[in-house]
């Protein structure tokens, strides 16, 4: 599955600017983000904290509006496209509904969208719960799950309605290192099984290299694209790849790019 930019891009960001109005003036967060994303591409964003990664994802999700510029998906406006089938979104915190069981949380999108008969929804939910390896915990409440399990649930509920676009904002950022690695490997497998385009924000460079087709390196204040690094490692990828020369070469390249601006910044 060579998933780089195809002839007509799936998602286009066209000259996105974003500034927040603050009491003491304007805070410029994003400047001229222009980018095409191919269908089924896995695209990561890395950059220093506060460079506008979350804001960019929120603009794509329609939670913020750009000050200037366009988001187009399959040639349509963002809102038009999303009204047909919502995109998936995984936040840094799991943001599950504490009063619903794991099963109810995963089913909720289907209930809200009114997708199919009740038994069908149940079956779809069971399938994704299996996909994220949480079978057996369906009746637990989020308050009874570990951090990693909550984040798996959050991923499951975002996949249950088979979105064609999945946005993930530091989904593993709040997890400990072991759980984080484990989930990164899982995500690789899950992404192989689902056919969706992913925009992924992370502050872990190894994670970005392992998962992505391309990595977008962002500058800080205001956030603009410094460079887009293609990761031409073969797929399917796995954890054993972390030690290969090609992997480490990509890692070093990204590190150099990220910390290049540091000296005079």
């Amino acid at each position: 599955m060579p998933a780089s930019v195809s002839a007509s891009p799936f998602l286009e960001l066209d000259g996105i600017f974003k500034a927040f109005q603050l009491p003491d003036g304007e805070l410029k967060v994003l400047e001229d983000i222009t980018l095409s994303v191919g269908e089924r591409e896995f695209l990561s964003f890395v950059g220093h904290s506060g460079c506008g990664k979350s804001t960019l994802l929120r603009i794509v999700a329609g939670l913020e509006t750009a000050s200037l510029g366009d988001v187009r998906i399959e040639g349509r406006t963002r809102a038009e496209w999303a009204s047909k089938r919502p995109m998936g979104f995984v936040f840094q915190s799991p943001a599950l509904l504490p009063w619903k069981t794991l099963m109810e949380n995963v089913r909720l999108p289907l209930d809200i969208l009114g997708d199919g008969a009740s038994s069908e929804r149940q079956k779809k939910a069971e399938e994704v719960i299996e996909l994220v390896r949480l079978s057996g915990f369906e009746r637990q409440f989020p308050g009874q799950l570990s951090g990693g399990m909550k984040q798996r649930t959050s991923i499951a509920r975002s996949l249950v309605y088979r979105p064609e676009l999945l946005l993930m904002d530091e989904p593993f950022g709040a997890l400990d290192d072991f759980t984080r690695r484990e989930l990164t490997d899982e995500l690789l497998r899950i992404w192989d099984e689902t056919a969706c385009t992913v925009l992924f924000v992370t502050h872990s460079l190894p994670e970005a290299v392992l998962l992505s087709d391309r990595v977008v390196v962002l500058d800080t204040k205001p956030g603009r694209i410094r460079e887009i690094v293609p990761i031409d490692l073969p797929r399917p990828r796995g954890r054993d790849m972390r030690q290969t020369d090609a992997f480490l070469a990509h890692l070093r390249r990204l590190e150099a790019l990220i910390f290049a601006g540091e000296d005079h910044g």
Partner: peptide
Amino acid sequence: LDREIVDYLQILGS
């Protein structure tokens, strides 16, 4: 409501 729960439900078009 938690802001993230609101965001999530909004993305779903609730």
